[in-house]
Design a protein around this nucleic acid. Structure first.
Lengths: 204, 204, 204, 204
DNA sequence: GATGAATGAGCATTCATTCAT
DNA sequence: TATGAATGAATGCTCATTCAT
């Protein structure tokens, strides 16, 4: 029954694990972590409550794996999006493009990132969220390279700039999610790009 | 500062509401809304559980009033910080300064804003958070004025730029809170300021 | 402190005690004992919550005194109603008349008797309700006299017959209260009288 | 009697619902609705607290279903008791017999009817108690038939007479319950029968 | 592996009662 | 006497997790 890795992570009985993850993303997005009920996720996944515990240790673990899954997709998607682009400012443009594309294609994912990434410090501190850190480092690396090449000003701190960029993207997306996705994300994307590019590039 | 207990019946009341709010901010900051227990807030406030319900309708109401209280302080503090400043880029610098000052002085407040502002869409959608919207508008107004005066470029959308600025500030603060306040916020503040100012001002 | 009986029981600060009793009857009638709140009784009585505890030991005691009060009025009213009547069947007719008159004049009282008299056996067993027993005995005495005089049949047990009469009256009143007092009590009174009189009198 | 566990999934379910109902009857009878604790009912039923909520919506629903269950048994028992009896006065005799038999066999049930049927008007008004109304109508129908056949007098109102009969029965039972079942119910039954029969039948 | 009935710890909220004023 | 703010024990209900089938 279970043929080879058709799914992303490991793929044991891939179908069910996949369905649970998808259901979890949807329900976490709608209700938030604490208001999401395992039984509702099970219902959406068309699986018994107990089945979830065959694939995930507990509710926390499910959230964490949801994060990892999302970040893996983000990072892999970004990698593809950056193929063939060498120049820093172009790469940053693509990062922004990619971020908004993902979000538009999968608004649930956006909601989970924007909302749950902020969960109680207690929770977030314990889970170091390595994949998110990796995503952050990828962006910082682009900026760093841009600084080295003279595209970005020398007084720009790549780590902080990367964080600031993510902050802008995330905040704009959050407001978009909270108002019920009722405005044009593309316009916002362009604004963020303009601000960030002017904000970091070498003055002309 | 503490004017002599002139509040309702023997100076207890005003005092208690204040203590409960303070305790709530602290506990919400530490645990997040859903993991914060009313009984813990009561303990921190040195008050009986039931007393909280003399001042607040329920846990939700307590969170909302915590928000309002924080935002009122933010807005009032900002107003003072902006006194005597007319020029847009200077005003924006002060906005950033003020944001980080508040956060440094009251890190709990920062945590509540960064974390709870994002809580479950369900919760945030119902409560429109008018005070936060007002804060956002104040910043947008500064940018708009800057655009009119030619300080900021004409292609900058004040609403989105304000949101983006807040996103940068908030994200930087969040990472500072999550790592246990272990880096220099001032350096980050300067970086954000540079990016935003270069990002929006009329090119030279 | 305890000056002469200006009020019914003991009469210290008669006014307030009276107001509280009246308010309690009203609220017990509307909500039932367990759903009645001391604070609501206090509000209706236009008295502070704590004041109630100056006149009554606790909520149970308040209910008990409400009973006593009601039964005292019932018994005294009945005494007056029976004045000048000697013959058993006429006296019974007056008992029934009086019962329904009281109930029509003070429906709240009816509700308290019909409903609260039945409260949890545990509660009612502890409180022996001596005044109610006295009321029962008054009726039984009339029947007993009637048996002795040959008005009522010799096989009628006065105690049980008294109880049965009260049961009929009370049930009819209860159904009247529960349907919102929407039918003619007088017609029911007459029916009960006919059944009881035919049911107990010596056959002709 | 106990047919082999053919109920939902391994024969637990049907069994449990039954046990909870039985436990609820017992505890409601002992303590009354408001003083009965869900956890005590659960203990008596040898079930976890939460399990109760798998079968009943909430405490109110549990009480209502207890009523329905009891009334269904009452009505069905009465139906059987009336089989083969055609004549009105004999049928009424059987109604009375049946009432006291049920009560003697299941005193808890009697307590629940006598006590909880009267619960707070607020509660009883909301729940229309259709099964009790049906029981009442059954008795009224017998009386009506008796009137038509000339067994009962023409001036007897069947509805009110039914209610009066129930009132007598219930009051006698209540007093029996309240004194700790210390007198002979049969004697009381006979008295009630005599009063009611003489009270309603065509004079000779 | 899959199920879902059963479990029971956990928590917001209520409200009778107290007591400083 | 009178007040009403403060108290905190008490309880209905939820839901993550388990485990017999």
């Amino acid at each position: 029954m279970e043929q080879g890795k058709t799914t992303i992570r490991g793929g044991r009985s891939g179908d069910k694990r996949e369905r649970i993850l998808r259901a979890a993303i949807q329900v976490f997005a709608e209700k938030g972590f604490f208001q999401a009920k395992i039984s509702e996720i099970a219902t959406v996944a068309e699986v018994a409550d107990g089945t979830i515990y065959l694939y995930f240790d507990n509710k926390d673990d499910l959230l964490i794996q949801v994060f990892e899954e999302i970040m893996v997709r983000f990072i892999e998607g970004l990698k593809v999006a950056l193929e063939g682009s060498e120049e820093a400012s172009d790469r940053i443009r693509r990062v922004i493009e990619h971020h908004f594309s993902m979000v538009e294609a999968h608004p649930d994912i956006a909601a989970v990132i924007a909302v749950e990434l902020r969960q109680s410090p207690k929770f977030m501190k314990e889970y170091k969220n390595p994949k998110f850190a990796q995503y952050m480092r990828s962006i910082a690396a682009i900026i760093e390279e841009g600084v080295r090449m003279g595209t970005f000003r020398g007084d720009v701190d790549p780590i902080i700039a990367a964080r600031a960029l993510f902050g802008m993207l995330d905040e704009v997306v959050l407001s978009w999610v909270l108002v019920g996705r009722r405005f044009d994300l593309r316009h916002s994307a362009e604004q963020v790009r303009i601000i960030f590019m002017h904000g970091t590039r070498t003055s002309t």
